[in-house]
Design a protein around this nucleic acid. Sequence first.
DNA 1: AATGAATGAGTGTTCATTCAT
DNA 2: AATGAATGAACACTCATTCAT
Lengths: 236, 236, 236, 236
Amino acid sequence: MTDTAVAGPVVQQRLPRQRADASRNYERIVTAAAQLFLERGADVPLDEIAQRAGVGNATLYRHFANRNELIRVVVLSLMSCLSAQAEQIGATEPDAFEALRRFAHASADLLIGGLCAVFSDRLDLADPELCEAREQMEDAFELMLRRARESGQLRPDIGVGDLIVPIVQLTRPLPGTAQATVEPYAHRHLELLLDGLRAPQRSVLPGSAATLADLRLSAHRLNDEPCTTPNGKPVH
Amino acid sequence: MTDTAVAGPVVQQRLPRQRADASRNYERIVTAAAQLFLERGADVPLDEIAQRAGVGNATLYRHFANRNELIRVVVLSLMSCLSAQAEQIGATEPDAFEALRRFAHASADLLIGGLCAVFSDRLDLADPELCEAREQMEDAFELMLRRARESGQLRPDIGVGDLIVPIVQLTRPLPGTAQATVEPYAHRHLELLLDGLRAPQRSVLPGSAATLADLRLSAHRLNDEPCTTPNGKPVH
Amino acid sequence: MTDTAVAGPVVQQRLPRQRADASRNYERIVTAAAQLFLERGADVPLDEIAQRAGVGNATLYRHFANRNELIRVVVLSLMSCLSAQAEQIGATEPDAFEALRRFAHASADLLIGGLCAVFSDRLDLADPELCEAREQMEDAFELMLRRARESGQLRPDIGVGDLIVPIVQLTRPLPGTAQATVEPYAHRHLELLLDGLRAPQRSVLPGSAATLADLRLSAHRLNDEPCTTPNGKPVH
Amino acid sequence: MTDTAVAGPVVQQRLPRQRADASRNYERIVTAAAQLFLERGADVPLDEIAQRAGVGNATLYRHFANRNELIRVVVLSLMSCLSAQAEQIGATEPDAFEALRRFAHASADLLIGGLCAVFSDRLDLADPELCEAREQMEDAFELMLRRARESGQLRPDIGVGDLIVPIVQLTRPLPGTAQATVEPYAHRHLELLLDGLRAPQRSVLPGSAATLADLRLSAHRLNDEPCTTPNGKPVH
DNA sequence: AATGAATGAGTGTTCATTCAT
DNA sequence: AATGAATGAACACTCATTCAT
């Protein structure tokens, strides 16, 4: 993935009249942020992002009012890339399950783990731009799943969340390590999961499939309650 | 899971003559820490842990010289519980794959996601107590896998890391949310993964199985290098 | 100087009925405190003093309400030793200047640098016990000086403060170092000073001689004022 | 002494393009630090230094990474002033001993007592800038001494440490008091010492002259050993 | 517009002092 | 009486955010 692959689509949405150096700085900041969020987590000092981008810290603030704004743009950028990938694979891969498989791995390659931030309390759930990007992405997954299901290769009890959430989780950087650490394993484990997705199904799944929005909502609901195990017993 | 289930085994290793109130506080701190680490990540203010434990901040420091000490004990406690579970399940469940399956879900119930801290740079890789607990845990998994493999129910190309890492990842709390948010989905996705583990295998896996130590080592190797994708292209 | 040399005289002044272990602890604390104050400054953690004394920290507080109490006793102990030395030397040394000289060096040997605490704001200037000890010590010096002056060996423009203050200063441990570091030099420089004290005088001294009380008073007067140089210009 | 007299030489060494307000703050911090270190010791809360300088605490940290950095600059500044004084006096005073005398008193006026920090474990003994400043200062003293010795006015058994150390000690602020408290006496006692330095010598000195580096080294050697009196008996 | 600098709120940690055994 | 433990108030240092150049 190149710099423009991440920052490009979003940058294009910005207002036209902008000094050349300003838009160059904007891109450099987004790029540096994407790198550092993945390498060091969502809490990296903004000063370091500015430094890696080669700009002053105040310049970062000129473009992004706060850390959440920056996260938002990085996430939008990632989701945008993802949707584009889906479209391209869907258009070219004849086998439906193989398309799903390739898309899943492509997502991992796109470091979709960064998307975990989608669920972060740092993002405004109602942000229209974000919602739209998310729906677009979910639609892409949905389409892939429908086709695979219709082809008879996908077990029928699978929803979009059953794919996105595991991809997000399996590709997250392990805490304290760079993204690159998990990546080789991510593909391997993803493959195992995909095998579990194939028809005929080998088990009865507990729970039900969820969308990202579902997850986000349940997170909101639970956030202030005491932490309990699924059996309802308080933790510890 | 009760308090003693988490803190017990470690507490038992402490020196004998300890005032009742002190050991009560010790356990309360470990318990509060385990909760808050899961709910809010490894960076929760220690003051909040002390507050939730109902003790002064300095009391926490009397028991644990710093945050890493505390993490270490929490992790040891979790791993210890896990090994005990394995033993119990292995002794009672006749079907080998079902034993594996139950153990995997039990691990998720034990909030094993917290174990992600094993990989954290916060822990001393060489700490003997930690190594021992990790090996014990890996042995338990190894035994489960061997039996399932010998019973012909497990695909043969699976190593211990192929189980532990996905469990850790799938059960990690989504960033910014409480552990409880993922948990229902964790079991569901784990089940999918387990289906992928069953024989006959439905795909050829990329990469190779890894142990926790492997992961940790590769993390060390990569940490100072520039972050690259598996294809060798620099990220972004 | 032995342990009892420091702690002894003061201990004898305490009330009679006391458990044997209590009075043993008292002495051990004073001894440990005297050591650590000299080695590490007046700010050593009291817990360390208790530890070196081999008692619990709370035991220290049973004997001394706070750090100042402890300093007070250590200082009293040192001054007491000093007065005893003066008496002994005065009684045995026939040459008056030599007596002064020996006393000065004996004072240095007694680590009189610790007396700097006399001036510390940590001590109650009006404390009667302290005043008495100070006067006693000053009397001893006074007597030495008078005899030396009468013998014609001492220049006439010298007061008691002209001896005590330089001794205190020259024997203070250099910051960040143990007392022992200066000690060899202290005797050497003291000797130089004593040479300066001999008659006939080689210069006209600025200012006037001071007593410890004078110093202490002027310290009080100045403490809250802005810091100025002797010329009245503000420092820096 | 004016602000620039203290902070000037060091400030001049900083990188060229600096905002006016930043360099003003830098000087104010150094000035405030020099004052407070002398008034209250090397342990004054940095927040208070910041407050006296009229800046926020974080501003202090922008300029000095930690307390030792600050001490280092203050010390460098003092030593630099001192060397300049020596040069000026040496060039204008025809009488060699009088030059020495004037320099000694000028040193006291420069609050050289603050130099005690030279010995502090807070300073990096190997710091090249510091070493250079120290050597420069010692050279200045050395030159003064040689001239006085050659003129026949200085007793021959005197080394540079025999001047610097007593000056440092005699001008140190008494603990718990402002620098100003000792200052009047410092000049008086210094004069006595200088009288002791004059030829013909009136005594045989014990020990030998030392440089600052010697002192620092012996401090290092002794710091971890048990504290003993010069006679080899353990203290107390 | 870009930026270096300023800043206050927050966190980890220490320590004098008090409490409970 | 002795003591291990508890505690809150300090202090060093960091960082997001704002200010001034």
